[in-house]
Design a binder for these strands. Structure first.
Length: 449
DNA sequence: CTAGCCTTGAAG
DNA sequence: CTTCAAGGCTAG
């Protein structure tokens, strides 16, 4: 029985990596692991491992150690209960609805991912209309190399051990399957939510009772900086600056500090630390303003109140004050930002979703001259998958939520491009001073064209 | 024992 | 009726 194509395109058995033949005992597995699991459970087989119970199980070596094979079956989530005690044939069991749901989830995920290209094209189109891209900007002689080393490169480690590539914590068993001949590393879980296959028995990739959060989202949350810690850090740094700063330059200092924390966050983040430093720099140079804007927006949506702008420092500034003191361009930007905040508020976007969006922004495969675009692409796809899955679990009654979030992201991108242009113009007028990272970032993109 | 193919039968 | 995940069979 060929498994219906389309539902799962190139799904591999989570136990041995062989071709999947359908759902067996709780998840998609290959025919041989299905049979192996059945024999083991039906006949109450007991195996022993002659090694250290950590044998690698793949298609060619799966026969070698039945102990570790069975262990892996259980670890990836195969269900003992699905093997029938009475050996009754045919029919359906209680897992039926679960399979159906998982299949629907996968299908939606695939179709969204397939639409990704189109969506990105249209969003970059949107962004480019707001930028005078063709003629290179004013010839300002500002060489990064003649200055002190750019702060981003000092913030990023100068070298990474090569062995670090594609590796995560040694404790977790991330299976990375390369697709075709390119080095597109792709972590793919078999059942819903199984992004992480670990030997930890608590990380059951599939749960029948109650909704659960995708593992990737949980990992993102775990590494997301704590708002109050960030607050303290930036507040102390701001106090050190003090002096004759007007509101705008104070905001710039704040942006600069926030940028530092964004770089720190990225450095410590899963996936990002696997990249070469050159790629890390390219990604950050490309998306810094988007991340900065998302930081501001998410703060308003999660903690802010209407009519005022909540700063990292927990200070509140009346919007009306900002608008009447701002020049017309800035006022427009603030108003547009306000609209975007409202859109996120209507959606009631939560921390989980913002943290996924952060990763979607960071891992942008459209960035030019990436060494390892395949990896960036695969991360982007995984994050999209996790976000989609999260939205389907958290608000199953609203299927369009994921698409709406992506729409907001695309608007955020065009707004950040406008904001970046605005900052760049003010920088050219020497109105932004003493903000190393901010200035480096402002120059990075312009020196590329 | 393994793993590919076959048969079964409740659910949709 | 069809679907498809259970169990069954058997050559290698």
């Amino acid at each position: 029985m060929a498994y219906r194509q389309g539902a799962c395109l190139e799904e591999l058995c989570p136990v041995c990596g062989d071709k999947v033949s359908g759902y067996h005992y709780g998840l998609l597995t290959c025919e041989s692991c299905k049979g192996f699991f059945k024999r083991t459970v039906q006949n109450s087989k007991k195996y022993t491992c002659v090694e250290n119970q950590q044998c690698r199980i793949d298609k060619t070596q799966r026969k070698r150690c039945p102990f570790c094979r069975f262990q892996k079956c259980l670890n990836v989530g195969m269900r003992l209960e699905a093997v029938r005690a009475d050996r009754m044939r045919g029919g359906r069991n209680k897992f039926g609805p679960m399979y159906k749901r998982d299949r629907a989830l996968k299908q939606q995920r695939n179709s969204f991912i397939q639409n990704r290209r189109f969506r990105l094209d249209s969003s970059s189109l949107l962004a480019s209309t707001s930028q005078q891209s063709d003629p290179p900007p004013v010839a300002i002689c500002y060489s990064l190399t003649t200055n002190q080393p750019p702060s981003l490169s000092t913030l990023l480690p100068s070298a990474l051990p090569a062995a670090n590539q594609y590796q995560c914590t040694p404790s977790s068993d991330w299976t990375i399957k390369s697709e075709n001949s390119n080095n597109c590393a792709c972590l793919s879980g078999s059942a819903a939510g199984s992004y992480i296959h670990s030997d930890d028995p608590h990380s059951t990739p599939f749960s029948t009772q109650g909704p659960r959060m995708p593992q990737l989202v949980m990992e993102f949350l775990r590494c997301d900086p704590d708002e109050s810690q960030l607050q303290d850090k930036i507040t102390t740094r701001l106090q050190q600056v003090h002096g004759d700063h007007d509101t705008f330059s104070l905001m710039c200092v704040m942006a600069d500090e926030t940028l530092c924390s964004i770089v720190e966050w990225a450095r410590a983040s899963i996936f990002f630390k696997q990249l070469e430093v050159s790629d890390q720099m390219k990604l950050l140079h490309h998306c810094w303003s988007e991340l900065l804007l998302l930081d501001i927006i998410s703060r308003q949506v999660l903690y802010g109140k209407e009519g005022s702008l909540l700063l990292v420092t927990r200070q509140e500034v009346e919007l009306s004050d900002i608008i009447c003191h701002a020049d017309p361009s800035l006022a427009t930007l603030v108003l547009q930002g306000q609209e975007l905040i409202q859109r996120f508020q209507i959606l009631k976007a939560d921390r989980q979703e913002f943290v996924c969006i952060k990763f979607l922004i960071l891992f942008n495969p459209d960035v030019k001259e990436l060494e390892d675009r395949g990896f960036v692409e695969s991360v982007q796809e995984q994050v999209e998958g996790a976000l989609l899955e999260y939205t389907l679990i958290s608000s199953p009654q609203y299927l369009g939520r994921f698409a709406h979030l992506l729409l907001c992201l695309s608007e955020l991108r065009s707004l950040s491009a406008l904001a970046e242009d605005y900052l760049y113009r003010r920088h050219l007028n020497s109105q932004i001073t003493c903000n190393n990272l901010l200035i480096e970032m402002l120059h990075a993109k312009h020196s590329w064209r």
